[in-house]
């Protein structure tokens, strides 16, 4: 089946992939093939028709808005008091980088991602998966059920649960008090830490599942021969286990980070980005600018930056997944 021309179905999303340039631009290259009856060509196009409904949806509600995002980000559109938006070039971006609140939310996003995704979910997930391999069945099942339950509970419910947990009169302070440790109003003094831990609570199950699957695929012989060679537990972990699951680690880190970058409901339910913007990560900042302050253009510029960061991570993720496509 070497004769494959650009299909009729719109190739929009395809053009976003790293291999862009493929569809759309490949009209008339039918080299050294016998001429075909027109009917053949039509069939060749027509059989790709089933792709159309999904592609139309994606173009209308995902690719289109992303393109619109690029346009809006360069205008000064506001929700109120303005007939039409005018083009302002890079004003929104220069403004963002000079905006203390924006810089603050970038830093908070980095802290949030580092603590909750990279250090928290990832490491804890790996630790739990490792322990599960050695633990007894009952304990393993119970722990798995609890951790996964935290993951399946809807985001907004998780937000409320962790809100009560970290509240001044909540459970955490009760426990600390019981242990004669100093208590404090976590949501006020360390809001970013509280929401980071909330995200760990909610997202660890995913890493745990990924790593459980990866660890169970390591052949026992490998671990055993390392043991025979006299490697201790730590050496086995660093020199055998981790290198063998490095692909899973990469994928998991990417997915965790992407998921963490777009967390909104959890933070909104717990702190609304406050107090005083001290837990205002980029999505919350974006929402605040676009709707509370009615600066759609500026909010979109922030959204665009978020999209670009997400896009970069996605490309890395694609490279990791490449073999599977």
């Amino acid at each position: 089946m070497s004769l494959t021309k650009a299909p009729t179905a719109p190739g929009g999303p395809g053009a976003d992939g790293p291999d862009s340039g493929g569809p759309g631009a490949t009209g008339p290259d039918v080299p050294a093939e016998r001429p075909r009856r027109p009917y053949d060509g039509v069939r060749r196009y027509a059989r790709w028709l089933p792709v159309a409904p999904g592609t139309v949806l994606l173009l209308l509600f995902l690719i289109g808005p992303i393109g619109y995002c690029f346009y809006l980000a360069f205008t000064d559109l506001q929700l109120t008091g303005q007939a039409s938006a005018s083009f302002v070039g890079f004003d929104n971006f220069t403004r963002a980088f000079g905006d203390e609140d924006f810089v603050n939310s970038v830093v908070l996003t980095l802290v949030f991602t580092l603590i909750s995704s990279i250090l928290g979910q990832n490491t804890l997930g790996l630790a739990l998966a490792g322990l599960m391999q050695r633990a007894s069945k009952t304990v393993r099942t119970i722990t798995g059920a609890i951790v996964i339950c935290a993951w399946v509970v809807p985001e907004i419910v998780a937000g409320f649960l962790l809100y009560t947990f970290f509240h001044r009169r909540g459970t955490l302070n009760e426990v600390l008090d019981f242990l004669h440790l100093p208590t404090q109003n976590w949501l006020f003094t360390l809001p970013i830490l509280a929401v980071s831990f909330a995200n760990i609570w909610r997202g660890t199950a995913f890493s745990m599942l990924v790593y459980s699957a990866a660890l169970s695929e390591i052949p026992d012989e490998v671990t055993e021969s390392a043991q025979i060679d006299g490697a201790n537990g730590w050496q086995r972990l660093v020199h055998v286990t981790l290198p063998m699951i490095r692909r899973s680690i990469g994928t998991n880190l990417m997915l965790n980070t992407l998921q963490t970058l777009s967390v909104f409901g959890l933070i909104w339910a717990m702190t609304r980005g406050g107090p005083g913007g001290r837990s205002e990560t980029l999505p919350v900042f974006m929402y605040d600018q676009a709707f509370n302050k009615a600066l759609i253009g500026y909010g979109t510029a922030v959204a665009l930056l978020l999209l670009v960061v997400g896009g970069l991570f996605s490309v890395v993720y694609l490279r990791l997944m490449r073999e599977e496509v």
Partner: peptide, 21 residues
Amino acid sequence: RPYLLGILFTTCLPITAVMVP
């Protein structure tokens, strides 16, 4: 293949960011 790669790419995009547009 490009279509699938594109699909996989959009899978990862932070949907939150598209909400304003």
